[in-house]
């Protein structure tokens, strides 16, 4: 099937309509990475709409995947890493869901994911690579094949093209037709956008096209299916230059998730089911005081450092 191009001139919509593009059972590529630029507001809306049975693919992730697991929406994970690094360690909901068998464990590797997405982007059925042979991933992924290279006689690994049903991305800026400007590391967002059947995006600010062009277009509009302007849409992960990682909130999240399903349900009730909108969520996390604290990183290294204490 050919991939679509999206040419609607105004793709902006509200968050519920944006998330309506995701269907139960979809293969989902979540943008961002670790504690940065995760499309958290979009994922919270996904939790509110309870769109489940999802299959996740991705590179290095944390609270985003853990949240979806904690809300019971994930059937399978092919992420290459899900955790909270040196900060809080393992991802509690993800671990529980994997260990109880609710989530099928199909871990991937970063380069394998890259090659699979590149095959999809180029319209090819597979990509060859050298690594992975001899590891436990071969038994975990029966779809990986090998071939003898007709040029060199080497044995190569083949990984099939991967076209996620939906990519969900949060960017700093976009225009109404969907051109996105990402500041800082794009992680796999660009590959996800080009390989996926649909791309839905949230942005901190919608700007006129001239201003986006001036900043530079990271992902061209015709890959984007729909978008919403959602300020603080990555909270509690960072979306610089607007705001830093909210370590305080993440700590509370991790504490409740670690206590077990019941405690985590209270988190979901407070911050997701109990908040109909992003505005209400921002009030619940502490309103202007919290937001100003997270924007304070710009005042210098000392203030920035205090956000991690």
């Amino acid at each position: 099937m050919n991939q679509a191009v999206y040419t609607k001139t105004d793709k902006s919509c509200d968050l519920p309509s944006l998330i309506a593009h995701v269907h139960p059972g979809d293969c989902l590529g979540v943008g961002g990475g670790l504690s940065s630029r995760e499309p958290m507001a979009a994922l919270r809306e996904l939790v509110r709409q309870a769109i489940g049975n999802l299959r996740l693919v991705g590179s290095a992730h944390g609270i985003d995947v853990d949240l979806l697991c904690g809300a019971g929406l994930v059937a399978e994970s092919a992420e290459s890493y899900v955790g909270f690094e040196q900060d809080f360690g393992m991802a509690p909901n993800y671990r529980r869901a994997c260990e109880t068998g609710i989530v099928a464990v199909r871990d991937g590797c970063c380069y394998t994911l890259v090659q699979q997405l590149r095959a999809a982007i180029a319209g090819l059925p597979f990509m060859p690579m050298r690594s992975v042979l001899g590891t436990g991933f071969m038994a975990m992924h029966p779809e990986y094949k090998t071939m003898i290279c007709p040029y060199t006689g080497e044995e190569l690994l083949l990984v099939p093209a991967l076209k996620p049903d939906v990519a969900i991305i949060h960017a700093q800026f976009g225009d109404a037709q969907g051109n996105l400007h990402i500041e800082g590391p794009p992680v796999t967002d660009i590959l996800f956008a080009k390989a996926s059947k649909k791309v839905i995006a949230t942005v901190e600010q919608i700007l006129p096209t001239e201003q986006i062009t001036e900043k530079g277009v990271t992902i061209p509009y015709f890959y984007i299916t729909a978008m919403s302007e959602v300020p603080y849409g990555a909270h509690p992960t960072a979306c610089y230059p607007f705001y830093a990682y909210d370590r305080r909130h993440t700590k509370e999240y991790h504490r409740l998730a670690s206590e077990g399903d019941e405690a985590f349900q209270a988190y979901l009730q407070t911050y997701i089911y109990g908040c109909d909108s992003q505005a209400q969520y921002l009030e619940t996390i502490g309103g202007m005081d919290s937001l100003e604290r997270l924007a304070s990183w710009q005042q210098g290294a000392e203030v920035w450092q205090a956000l991690y204490a």
Partner: peptide, 18 residues
């Protein structure tokens, strides 16, 4: 039987070969 799910290796698998 899966006793403990660890976070996963990121790209370590690929880089250990390459």
């Amino acid at each position: 039987r899966l006793q403990l799910k660890l976070p996963g290796g990121g790209g370590g698998c690929n880089l250990s070969c390459d």
